[in-house]
Amino acid sequence: MKIHTSLLALSLLASASGFAAETYQVTTSVYTNGELVASPVVLVEADKATSMTIGENFSYNLTVKPNQDETADVITALTLENDTLTPSFTVAYGKEASIEIGTQKLTILVSRIDNQ
């Protein structure tokens, strides 16, 4: 069963006022055979893992590790049906990156959120 959804999942941050951790919005698109399967968007704190599940056939875990040069390392684990992909990306903020593995394609866009 294919899931066609756009999901905005917000991770609850440790404190509503004055948190110091950097926060990132990660926009992802997942394709199988060129067809969009899911497009989750998640807010995540730096260096903290977040995960989500959509239906019975899709789960997604990711961690954003910021670098000093306006880039971040993104470590992912994506399970679609019974296939698990574990790509890691180094991405520039605000620029989409993608990877194709067999019939699966994953695109990712990381943006910094100001914490003031």
Rank of each mutant, 00 (worst) to 15 (best):
V91F: 02
T90M: 00
T79C: 06
T28Y: 01
F89H: 02
A14N: 05
T79N: 01
M52Q: 09
R112L: 06
K105W: 02
Y24E: 12
S15N: 14
S11D: 08
S59Q: 11
A77K: 06
V26N: 10
T32G: 13
V64Q: 02
P66W: 03
G94K: 07
I3G: 05
E100I: 12
T86D: 10
P66D: 10
L85I: 08
V91E: 02
T103V: 08
E70T: 04
L78K: 10
T107Y: 00
L10N: 07
E81H: 11
N33Q: 12
V37E: 14
T63C: 09
M1A: 14
T84H: 05
T27S: 15
D114P: 06
E56K: 07
L85D: 00
I99E: 04
K48F: 02
S39H: 14
L10V: 15
V30G: 03
T5D: 11
N82Q: 13
Q104G: 03
T63Y: 01
F19L: 15
Q104W: 12
A16D: 01
L13G: 05
R112M: 03
A38S: 15
P40H: 08
S17Q: 09
I99Q: 11
V26Y: 07
F58R: 11
V26F: 03
Y31F: 15
T50P: 01
L106S: 09
L80V: 14
A46G: 11
I101F: 00
E96N: 04
S98Y: 14
P87H: 05
